Computed example of a mutant assay.
Amino acid sequence: MDSDFRQAYLLHRRPYRDSQVMLNMLVEGIGQLSMVARIKGKRALKQNASLQPFTCLLVRFAGKYDLKYLNDFEIQTPPLLFKGIHLYCGFYLNELSHRVIPTNEPLDHVFELYQTHLKQLYTANLTMINSNEHDKAAVSEQIEGILRNYEFQLLCELGFGVEFDFDAYGEPIEVTKHYQFVREVGFCPSEDIHRSFSGKTLFAIAQGDYQTQTVRRQAKALSRYLLKPLLGSKPLKSRELFQPR
C-alpha cells in the first residue's frame, strides 16, 4: 500500500545493491523506517543532492513489511547548513537517533522532537557566526543544553525517561539534599555527596538550565549512563569528532 506524502529526515544511508541505497528515515507521525531507494538515470545527480542530512523532505513510500520502498520524494525546505562544532552535533543527533529509535515501531512524537532540536542547533550556529569572541563561549554552553534536552526527552519518548522532580519514594526532590541514581528505581536520597547528584543540579536539569559547568558535566554523565543499554558496546562514531586533534 502506498503512503501519502509525509515529512521526513534522512538519518543514515548506505549502498545496498546495484543502483539502490538503503535509507533510514525519521518519518513524521511514524518514527524510524528503513527504505530502499533506486538512484539511477538522468535524475541520479539531483536525487543524490536531495538525499542529504538535515534536509526536510516530503516522501512517499510503499511496502507491507518492515522494509519499505521509496517511491517519490522532494525537498520541502532547504537543507540546514551547519559549520564547525554545530555540524558535529548534527551528525551526533542523527547517529544517536538512528541507533536508539527502534525501526518500524510507531512513535508519534520523535519526528517533532528531532526537528525542534535540529532547528535549535541551527539557530545556535547562526548566533555563533554573528557573535563576538566573548559571546561564543555562551553559545558553546547552549549547544550542550540542546543535546542534553534532546537526549533526556528522547529517552522519555522511548520509555526510559527519568523523573527529575521526585525521588524514588515519590517525595519532591529537595535542593539541599543529595541523590544517587539507581537504574529502574530512580533517585534515592544519599549521604555520599561525592558520588551523587545534588538536588540543586537535578532541579537545574529539570528546568533545562545548563549554565554551570557542574550541571553540564553531571547531565552528560547521566545521559551517557542512561543511553548505554540502548547503544550497546558499539561506540558512537560521531563522538570521535569532538576529541582534541
Rank of each mutant, 00 (worst) to 15 (best):
D66H: 07
V59Y: 03
S50N: 04
A49G: 12
S19Q: 09
V110Q: 01
P102C: 05
R17V: 08
F5Y: 15
R60I: 04
F5I: 14
L80V: 07
A37C: 12
E28I: 00
M25K: 00
K68I: 00
G41C: 13
I75M: 11
S19P: 03
A37V: 15
L26I: 02
S50D: 01
F61S: 04
I101L: 04
Y16R: 10
R38L: 13
T116V: 05
F5A: 14
L80T: 05
G41A: 09
L26M: 03
L70I: 03
A49C: 03
F5H: 12
V21R: 07
V27A: 04
Y88I: 07
H109P: 02
R17S: 12
L80Y: 06
V21P: 02
I101C: 01
T77D: 15
L26F: 00
G41Q: 14
R17A: 13
Y92W: 15
G84H: 12
F82T: 03
Q32N: 06
H86D: 14
L67M: 09
D18Q: 11
D108W: 10
K40H: 14
P53E: 01
I75H: 04
T116H: 13
M25C: 11
I101W: 01
V21H: 08
G31T: 09
A44I: 03
F61K: 05
G63T: 05
Q20G: 07
F91H: 12
H12M: 07
I39K: 07
R99K: 12
F82P: 01
G31R: 05
K42L: 09
E112G: 04
S50R: 04
Y65M: 09
T77C: 08
K83W: 10
Y69F: 09
R13M: 14
P106D: 12
K46A: 07
E112M: 00
A62V: 05
K40R: 15
L81R: 12
K68M: 08
L51W: 02
M35Q: 07
Y88P: 05
K40E: 15
V21I: 13
G41I: 11
N71D: 13
I30Q: 14
Q7A: 13
Y92E: 07
I39P: 03
L81E: 15
L57F: 00
P78S: 14
G63M: 02
G29M: 09
L51K: 00
R38F: 10
L33G: 04
P53N: 04
L93Y: 12
L80C: 10
N94Q: 11
F82M: 06
T55D: 03
A37S: 14
P15D: 11
